[in-house]
């Protein structure tokens, strides 16, 4: 998903020796920062080394696209793209209809529309909102939500429970408004 972009496959297969040296030196200077950045985005040490290594390879392949101004910034952006791709790759992608069950009629909550869902989710704390979205919109299991967010499964269950309660409260408050 979303792999192609300005930092996609290389157009230029090799670098001039001085460019290669500049990149290697700049990369080594940035390595500690890149390690920290990738670890923070990935939420775990696992895969950090790979992401940083891939950053170098992608930078090497796309050197001709570097504007020569801010190498640490450019490398950081590449690292961010790689981390996003890595997170997306390790999580399940479900088709739209999977898991849908017949709707039970007569429930008052059924009338929650897309726009109301957006509004209410926007009012919830980040953790509760993220867990609710992954669980109800993406159809992830609690374990998959934990993997995606970096929370423990126990935390996810707690956020889901509190999130549901707050969602209902917000929805009821929304209904009171004319």
């Amino acid at each position: 998903m979303g792999m192609a972009g300005r930092d996609g496959p290389a157009d230029v297969p090799c670098l001039r020796a001085d460019d290669e040296e500049q990149l290697a030196r700049g990369f080594e200077d940035c390595r500690p920062h890149l390690m920290k950045l990738c670890r923070r985005i990935l939420g775990q040490a696992d895969g950090t080394e790979d992401a940083v290594h891939d950053t170098y390879l992608r930078a090497f392949g796309n050197w001709s696209r570097f504007d020569g101004v801010n190498l640490p910034g450019w490398l950081s952006r590449i690292a961010q793209h790689i981390c996003i791709d890595q997170i997306r790759a390790r999580l399940p992608v479900r088709p739209l209809d999977e898991g849908d069950e017949p709707v039970t009629a007569g429930e008052e909550m059924r009338r929650v529309t897309a726009i109301q869902i957006r509004t209410i989710l926007g009012k919830l704390p980040d953790q509760q909102r993220q867990c609710l979205k992954l669980f109800y919109i993406e159809g992830f299991s609690a374990k998959e939500v934990a993997k995606a967010t970096g929370f423990t499964e126990k935390q996810v269950k707690s956020y889901l429970q509190n999130g549901r309660r707050n969602f209902i409260l917000e929805w009821e408050a929304l209904k009171q408004k004319p």
């Binding site: 849908d100 069950e101 709707v103 039970t104 429930e107 008052e108 909550m109 059924r110 009338r111 929650v112 529309t113 897309a114 109301q116 869902i117 109800y136 549901r164 969602f167 209902i168």
Partner: peptide
């Protein structure tokens, strides 16, 4: 809860 959100 899940059912009530399904349409939205």
């Amino acid at each position: 809860f899940a059912a009530s959100l399904r349409d939205g």
